[in-house]
Design a protein around this nucleic acid. Sequence first.
DNA 1: ACCTGAACACCGTTCAAGT
DNA 2: ACCTGAACACCGTTCAAGT
Lengths: 209, 209
Amino acid sequence: MARQEPVRRRSKPADQYHHGDLRRALVDETVRLIQAHGVEWLTLRTIGERLGVSRTALYRHFSDKQALLGAVGREGFRLLRVALSEAWQRHGKGRPGFEAMAIAYVGFAVTHPAHYRVMFGGFVESCAKDTEFIAEANGAFDVLVQSLVDQQQAGIVRQDDPRMLALFIWASVHGTAMLAIDGQLGDDPRGEQLNRFAIERLRAAIARP
Amino acid sequence: MARQEPVRRRSKPADQYHHGDLRRALVDETVRLIQAHGVEWLTLRTIGERLGVSRTALYRHFSDKQALLGAVGREGFRLLRVALSEAWQRHGKGRPGFEAMAIAYVGFAVTHPAHYRVMFGGFVESCAKDTEFIAEANGAFDVLVQSLVDQQQAGIVRQDDPRMLALFIWASVHGTAMLAIDGQLGDDPRGEQLNRFAIERLRAAIARP
DNA sequence: ACCTGAACACCGTTCAAGT
DNA sequence: ACCTGAACACCGTTCAAGT
C-alpha cells in the first residue's frame, strides 16, 4: 500500500474571506448558539464552523473567549438601557412610564435570555476591569435611578435615597426575570403575571407615605 | 544515552485507598474549589489531585460532572431550607420571624456563594429531570409560602394568593443575594444594608390594607 | 490587515485491569 | 466494591506562514 500523500489543501482564495463585519457576525453567532444550547456548551470551534471561517479567525477581533462573552454582555446592557429609556420616555415619565420600564425589563430578559445570562452569569468577575462593561451596566442602572428622582420630585415616591430605592426595585425585577428564564414559573413562562403583581406591590412599597 | 525505562508505578496499596466517605469528600472539595476559583474553572482532575485520588475515582459516585454539580445544588437547597425554617421557628413565626428569614436567606447566599451559584446558575436546566433536586428546591420555597399563609391567618398580611406573594418576596431577596455575591454592592458587600431597607419596604408592600 | 493549518497543553469520559 | 493508568475525542490558544 502506497502511503497516502497528505492532502495539500489549497489556501482559501482571498475573495472567499469573510469580508464585511466579522466581529459583528461573531457576536451574533455567539448569541444564537447560547440561545440554542446554553453558554455551558459554547465552543469557539463551532462558532467558526457556522460562519465558514477558521476556528482561530476570531482572535483577530477578540483576545480570548472571555472577551467575546464580555462583548455579548456589554451589548446586552446597551440594549437594556435603550429599552428602559424608551419605555420611560414614551409613557410620560410618571407612574405609567415606571410600570412600562418594569415590563420592558422583564420583557428584555425573556426575549434575550442569552444576553441576560451572560450579563449576570458571574462573568462580571472577569469583566470587573472592563471599564466599558461597567459603564454600560451603570448606564442602564442610571435610567432607573433618574426615573425615581423624577418621581420623587413629582411627589409620588417617598424621599429615601434614590440609589437605595433603585437597588430595591432592580432586585425585584431582576429576581422575576431570573425565575422566568430559569423556567421556574411553570404556567407563566414569561413572568408577565408575576411581574404585574410585583409592579403593583412595588408601587405600594415606594409610594410617598 | 540509554533510553530511560518507563517508570513502573507500583499500584497504590489497598490501605492507601480513600476509605471513609469519598462521595462526601468530593462534594466538599468541589464547593471549596468553586469558592476559590469560580465554577467556570472547576476541573475534575484538580478535585482528584486535592483528595489524593485518581482523576476517575469520582465516577464510582457520580455519573458525570453535571451530576456532581447537581449534588452541590441539592445540598444547597437543603441547607437553605433548614436555615429558613430555623429562622422562622426561632423568632416566633410572626413579623420578626419573617424578617429573620429574609436575613437568613441573603446570609446563606453570601456565606455559601458556591452553593448559591450552582443552585441558580442555569444548571437547573440539566437538573430539570432530577426529581430530588426539584423536591429540595420546592421544600425551601414551601417554607416561605407557609410563613405567608400563617401571617395571613394572623391578620398581618394581605389576602392575595400566597404563592404569588411568595414569588414576589423570593424575587426580591434573590435579587439582593445575586447583587451581593456578584460584588455589585460596593460598600455593602454582604447586602445587609440593602436587605434591611428591602425588608422594610416589603413589609409595607404585603401588609394587610 | 486578515486569515490559515499545524501544534501544544489541557479537559471529560471510557475501559480493561488490578486489589 | 472500589480504585487505577492508558487511551480517546475534544477544547482554547499560540504561532509561523500565506495572501
